[in-house]
């Protein structure tokens, strides 16, 4: 028990090198296989891990759409990775289309990419630099968070 507490305390002061995103391949909602390398932005890539049953995720999408449209020309690409499992995956395409998501939506039915990156919450926004390194992680979405995302993108573009 004591050792356990020591371990926990040590983790809380730990800092290790940034994580890297591998060139994963997933199908998009139109059944085309897409790879991360094909979709990534020349400067930054924002990956949104979401699910149709997650209310804050759906709420974030129109805001992400706006940011995407504003920064697309500056070398920032967006990728939506739906982590819907077998239970809700059939709703990803109709919901994405009705929300008029402008960026590609990929299906990760096993949440494989999300678990590889040790992400635990929905939604999780991840910003990846041109070297495929994760430079920013943001969990959850409450109104006002869109400002944080813009600030971070601006900072990283400098």
């Amino acid at each position: 028990m004591r050792a356990l507490i020591i371990v926990v305390m040590l983790f809380s002061i730990l800092n290790v090198s940034a994580q890297q995103v591998r060139n994963f391949k997933l199908k998009d909602i139109e059944n085309n296989t897409q790879s991360f390398t094909q979709l990534k932005g020349s400067k930054l890539t924002v990956i949104d891990f979401w699910a149709t049953w997650c209310k804050p995720c759906v709420k974030a999408i129109p805001e992400l759409n706006k940011i995407y449209e504003a920064y697309k020309i500056k070398g920032v690409e967006f990728i939506g990775v739906s982590c819907d499992g077998p239970r809700s995956v059939s709703k990803v395409a109709p919901l994405s289309k009705t929300l008029q998501i402008k960026y590609p939506i990929l299906l990760d039915i096993n949440s494989e990419i999300k678990s590889e990156l040790n992400l635990n919450a929905f939604p999780t926004l991840v910003i990846v630099n041109s070297n495929n390194k994760i430079v920013w992680v943001h969990e959850g979405f409450v109104s006002g968070d869109q400002k944080l995302v813009i600030e971070e993108i601006e900072k990283l573009l400098k």
């Binding site: 499992g85 077998p86 039915i109 096993n110 949440s111 494989e112 678990s115 635990n120 919450a121």
Partner: peptide, 28 residues
């Protein structure tokens, strides 16, 4: 690699929509 993935040990895999096999983890 670009084309091949090999996993040994504990892994997650679902076949199709899970009628035969569904593995998962609920983080948190």
């Amino acid at each position: 690699s670009d084309k091949i993935q090999v996993k040994l040990g504990n892994f997650y895999e679902t076949i199709g929509r899970g009628t035969l096999l569904h593995s998962f983890q609920i983080p948190g």
